[in-house]
Write a protein that binds this DNA or RNA. Structure first.
Length: 259
DNA sequence: ATGCCTTATTTCATAAGA
């Protein structure tokens, strides 16, 4: 089974590239983030044409997540338990079970800057994610939380830690929130880079950051032990970041050999 | 070469991204 996660930065703007990528990569299930589209205008027919079912959760201009699956899509859950808002809950999480594997597609709030009320929102949202995962008792199931976590787990996951002093994505409270997810029995499936030494998944559009490989690893797959133990390969598809009109994130692809 | 920001909308400017 091949699963993937990709922040597409607008599914409308990315649709031709997404369809080409689905056709060539053929993931069984894909978690998408920043679809930026209401559910009633999601390009459902185009995706279904390639054999995928769609569980979308969108609310307009910002945010938006989805799970696409060509191996079944059941028990769709939109939003978290007691999900906090800014001020109202946003479309940042959707869960679905695909061929016996429970997947969550998440788009964690950015936080803007430490001390900002959006940063407090980010931490509250991560706590709600932890609580939501906890009630599903993931440790003994094939289970993964996939998405744009907007947190770099370690200093090696940013191109230059010195640039991130007093910045979000690297602070101890954010990293502690990831540790609390790991305490629930989830494991960070670290993909291999296809080039260079570190598996960055995001590069700013500006200043040739991609071409200088000044990136971050913030798109993560947090998998339960049964799923993590079955991982045969995992890689960042940086090819999808190249060329004209890419997302600023690359997909993470994980191949699993489940018994 | 991979090439120096992009998105949707409150559109010819703005907010947000990270």
């Amino acid at each position: 089974m091949r699963i993937a996660t990709w922040n597409v930065n607008s599914i409308a703007a990315r649709l031709p590239r997404l369809l080409d990528w689905l056709d060539s990569t053929r993931p069984d299930a894909v978690c998408l983030q920043e679809t930026k589209i209401p559910d009633d205008t999601f390009p459902r027919a185009e995706v279904e044409e390639l054999g995928y079912e769609v569980a979308a959760h969108g609310d307009g201009r910002w945010n938006g997540v989805a799970v696409l699956s060509r191996v079944g899509l059941a028990d769709v859950t939109r939003g978290l338990v007691a999900e906090p808002g800014f001020p109202h809950p946003e479309a940042r999480a959707v869960g679905a079970t695909c061929s016996g594997v429970r997947l969550w597609s998440v788009y964690v709030p950015n936080g803007r800057e430490p001390g900002h009320e959006h940063y407090a929102y980010k931490l509250a949202w991560l706590a709600a994610l932890r609580d939501t995962v906890s009630v599903e008792s993931p440790e003994s199931l094939p289970y993964a939380v996939c998405g744009d976590f907007n947190v770099a787990p370690t200093d090696d996951d940013v191109w230059d830690p010195a640039v991130f002093t007093a910045a979000t994505h690297v602070t101890p409270p954010e990293r502690n929130a990831l540790a609390e997810l790991r305490d629930l029995g989830l494991h960070d499936v670290v993909p291999r880079p296809l080039k260079y030494d570190r598996p960055f998944t995001y590069w700013d559009y500006r200043a040739g950051m991609f071409h200088r490989n000044l990136g971050m690893r913030i798109d993560l797959v947090y998998a339960s032990k049964p799923l993590a133990d079955a991982v045969a390969d995992a890689y960042v598809d940086r090819e999808a970041r190249k060329g004209k009109g890419p997302s600023d994130h690359a997909p993470v692809v994980v191949d699993i050999d489940l018994p």
